[in-house]
Write a protein that binds this DNA or RNA. Structure first.
Length: 889
DNA sequence: GAGCACTGC
């Protein structure tokens, strides 16, 4: 663990220092521009006029330009190389480090101001640069009419814009927003508005129509919707089915069918290694069905993702010629598409775990297949630890994994045999940089442009770490391309990340127009969750954001960290799905070999385990320290979870599950939220509390805050905070207001609220409402008595309390540490004396997110076992910051 | 004045 941290730090340090060094060694502006920026973008392809008499001349010039460009690119490479060399000198590293330490604090403020100032002039500078570029590059050349006009126009624009860039920006963005709003207005039906529907449909469609050879056959749902005459329908069905059977036989796994079945017969646990495209996910369950395993019970196949479970089930149903939900079905949260007839059941791994809570021996299954086990989700790790196979000698367990982890799984399951067969994949050429990159964003952009200029057509996929980075990259790329106009091929930029509105997500699936190239700027979402056709080049800077949890402080953090080798391989593989491809890694082979971890740290080792422990306890597992985790989590994390559950009254002193604990375990929520719900029964406000619980569990993506509309968005948000009711009540107000408008999408837009998150909250709320019945809690509402709602919250979250300090910061009550109210909180200016918070996150400071005021005496009333008088003594005579300590209560 | 990667129940 220590080793790993050190490594990560060195890796990051190296890059930071590089940055510092760049600043110090920065060449003069024009110098920098000439070598670094201009030439790459500049050249490429000049517009060829129709005029035939000029064509020869054009060709010569084209050739000359191409040569120039090649030279520019070479210059650039050397330039970059030298820069990095300099950056890496030891002395400079130390110097940069020292300086960073000395004035990290004051420099933050300064840099903010600088940033604002810079932003103001950025656009202007860009334009000026463009003009200079043109003059520099094309001064001695005969420009075409159009190009001259363009140039003059730019110059005029620059002069004009100098005076009023800011205004223009606003007008432009105002327009864009209006268009977006209009588009939403145009869509009326709820189906259309379902943010998931679109791309989930797309993914399902993919599974349906993709043939093994990569070609597409159209047969989806033609015979299901009854649109065709009966005969045509039958005929279509027949040929479609026949064709599908052909396809099945052409899959790589087909040749191993008998061997595989024999291996399953002979061994209880089998590790299966088959590359993507081998057909294992769709075929193995069918083989097992054909071999008669389904006579003894269901065949269950788990997937890490909902879409995968749905789309694979749809595909298999089609191959078997049955209706989805009958013999073949799927089960995911909020959606159970199975029936009594179902023998092949695809499901999310979390779903199987939930089923296990009700049916601990999985009696209704004869085979369980855990697919994509190498992803090591929390659920698969727990499933493995439970070792169901030991109690059910007749249950077959198949684990499918990527090559490199197969041994590990085999060892874990008492040297279970490994069955491997080849997949279908195209070769991917891997390129490393010769020296470390100082700025991976810049390097990524240069690489994209270089590919665009040098390499044959084929789309590019760039892995970045988050929304902000993607937006920046998009901006820079657009701007660099814009200046070139017709001189290069068209480059279509497609951003993709989970929070992107779905109608914009759909853009990445549109086929690239003839002669153009698409560049997809993606987060990790493109690593596993979705596949994009036509990707031939992958640019991998080697970083991703990863959440980690500190069990000692209970603090979460989301940090940019180097990826693992396994991740790097996965990313590279994305280039070789439809043809041979290339992967550009923006780190050195040495970095790869020495600095990157073999595998990503499994989730179980970097998460809060409270709900896991509660689930295991409810399965009757008492000795958690010796639970057979494949990679055990830190003991501290387990202890912390046990302590919390004890404090919440879910476990007794002996560590046994209490009645309250049993009820809490029914809810698919963090135990503190479950506790809050269980207690709400007593305060007769379960209706309000489940809304709050649902809103809290969708996470922080409720309020929409576009860059250009921050003031409006903040105003809209503050409406829900009137009376300083606290963030929890504000969330409740958001939910009930939305409900009052009959779940209106329009209302969401008007109030800067994310529809997608609200719909998710509604789904969760519905589920929670259903579960209330199971734990015998009646729905009761007590909106007039907000203190009872607050008391329920405190009853669940009493370990998360903090008290205001003299300096305006807070100190957590039980395990003292200094924290602050998150600036996005409605109480960030109010500073109540006592607060309860939902979570603690470490970003630039230790922040409490979702905060509500409480009365200290409640702590004694609601958690007498946890707090003593002295903890909540309130020295009112002490001077508090001005205007603080007075909120709604 | 901050900044939510990605899943899942």
């Amino acid at each position: 663990m220590l080793m790993q941290q050190t490594k990560q730090q060195t890796y990051t340090l190296l890059i930071d220092d590089g940055d510092e060094a760049v600043k110090e060694k920065k060449p003069s502006k024009s110098d920098n521009k000439r070598k670094g920026k201009v030439p790459v973008v500049r050249e490429v392809r000049r517009k060829v006029d129709d005029d035939a008499s000029e064509s020869e001349e054009e060709r010569v010039r084209d050739q000359k330009e191409r040569q120039e460009l090649e030279q520019h690119l070479r210059d650039l490479d050397t330039f970059r190389y030298h820069l990095t060399e300099q950056k890496l000198s030891k002395k400079e590293q130390e110097e940069a480090l020292r300086r960073a330490k000395d004035d990290s604090h004051s420099s933050r403020k300064v840099s903010r101001q600088e940033y604002l100032k810079k932003r103001e002039h950025k656009k202007l500078e860009e334009l000026r640069d463009e003009i200079e570029d043109e003059q520099y590059l094309f001064s001695g050349e005969n420009l075409t009419e159009t190009e001259l006009r363009e140039f003059r126009y730019k110059k005029e624009l620059y002069d004009l814009a100098k005076k009023r860039t800011e205004d223009e920006d606003n007008v432009e963005e105002e327009k864009r927003f209006a268009v977006a709003v209009q588009r939403y207005k145009d869509l009326d039906s709820r189906e259309k508005m379902d943010p998931f529907a679109e791309w989930e449909d797309h993914q399902i469609g993919l599974a349906r129509v993709r043939k093994s050879d990569g070609s597409v056959c159209r047969l989806e749902s033609q015979y299901e919707d009854g649109m065709h005459p009966k005969e045509a329908q039958d005929a279509a069905e027949k040929t479609a089915l026949e064709e599908l059977q052909e396809v099945r036989k052409s899959l790589p796994i087909y040749g191993y069918r008998e061997q595989l079945l024999q291996a399953v017969e002979e061994h209880q646990v089998l590790v299966i290694v088959g590359d993507t495209g081998s057909g294992k996910t769709t075929q193995i369950p069918q083989y097992l069905h054909e071999a008669g395993y389904t006579k003894r019970g269901k065949v269950g196949c788990t997937q890490p993702r909902r879409v995968a479970a749905m789309s694979v089930a749809a595909r298999v149903a089609q191959e078997m010629g049955v209706k989805l939900g009958h013999e073949v079905g799927y089960s995911i949260r909020f959606e159970d598409c199975t029936s009594d007839k179902t023998v092949l059941k695809y499901m999310t791994d979390g779903m199987l775990l939930r089923e296990l809570l009700g049916e601990p021996d999985l009696a209704s299954y004869s085979v369980v297949i855990v697919d994509e086990a190498h992803e090591r989700t929390l659920s698969t790790d727990i499933l493995f630890g439970l070792d169901i196979a030991r109690f059910r000698p007749d249950l077959k367990l198949l684990i499918s994994s990527a090559t490199m982890d197969a041994e590990k799984f085999s060892d874990y399951f008492d040297t279970a045999p490994i069955f491997s067969f080849p997949g279908r994949r195209y070769p991917v050429e891997i390129n490393f940089t010769s020296a470390p990159e100082a700025d991976y964003m810049d390097a990524a952009i240069v690489t994209v442009l270089t590919i665009h200029v040098r390499e044959p057509l084929g789309d590019i996929l760039v892995f970045l770490t988050g929304q902000e980075e993607i937006e920046t990259a998009e901006e820079i790329l657009k701007q660099r391309i814009r200046g070139l106009g017709t001189k290069i091929r068209e480059l279509i930029i497609c951003p993709i990340y989970a929070n992107l509105p779905s109608e914009l997500q759909a853009k990445i699936f549109e086929p690239t127009p003839e002669g153009a190239r698409k560049v997809v700027l993606a987060t990790n979402i493109a690593e596993t969750s979705l596949t994009i056709d036509g990707i031939k080049y992958v640019v991998d800077p080697g970083f991703s954001k990863m959440k980690s949890y500190n069990p000692r402080t209970g603090m979460e953090s989301l940090l940019i960290t180097p990826i693992s080798k396994a991740s790097a391989t996965q990313r590279a593989g994305r280039a070789g799905r439809t043809s041979a491809g290339k992967c550009y890694r923006l780190y050195t082979a040495f970095n790869y070999n020495n600095d990157l971890e073999e595998n990503t740290v499994p989730e179980v080792q970097r998460t809060n385990l409270a709900s896991v422990v509660l689930a295991l306890k409810s399965l009757g597992i008492h000795d958690l320290i010796n639970f057979d985790f494949m990679d055990p989590p830190p003991a501290e994390a387990l202890v912390k979870a046990l302590e919390l559950l004890f404090a919440l009254g879910a476990l007794n002193k002996l560590g046994e599950l209490t009645k309250a604990g049993r009820r809490m375990a029914e809810f698919p929520l963090d135990p503190m939220l479950s506790k809050m719900i269980v207690v709400s029964d007593k305060y007769k406000c379960s209706d309000e509390i489940i809304s709050i619980a649902a809103m809290l569990s969708v996470g922080g993506s409720i309020f929409y805050r576009p860059k250009d509309k921050q003031v409006h968005a903040d105003n809209a948000r503050m409406n829900f905070h009137t009376g300083n009711v606290g963030d929890h009540i504000a969330l409740l107000k958001v939910y009930s207001s939305w409900k009052e408008t009959n779940y209106s999408t329009q209302w969401c837009y008007e109030n800067y609220i994310q529809v997608r998150s609200m719909k998710r909250a509604r789904d969760i709320r519905d589920q929670l409402e259903g579960l209330l019945e199971r734990v015998e809690i009646e729905i009761s509402s007590n909106m007039n008595e907000l203190d009872s709602v607050r008391k329920s919250i405190v009853a669940g979250f009493f370990p998360h309390t903090a008290k205001l300090q003299k300096n305006g910061s807070y100190r957590t009550v039980k395990h003292p540490q200094t924290v602050h109210i998150h600036p996005n909180s409605g109480l960030s200016q109010v500073l109540p004396r006592w607060v309860v918070y939902h979570e603690l996150v470490l970003t630039s400071k230790e922040y409490m997110r979702q905060v509500t005021e409480l009365k200290p005496e409640w702590l004694i009333e609601l958690a007498p076992h946890y707090y003593q008088r002295k903890d909540v003594e309130d020295d009112a005579s002490k001077k508090m910051p001005k205007g603080a300590g007075k909120a709604a209560i």
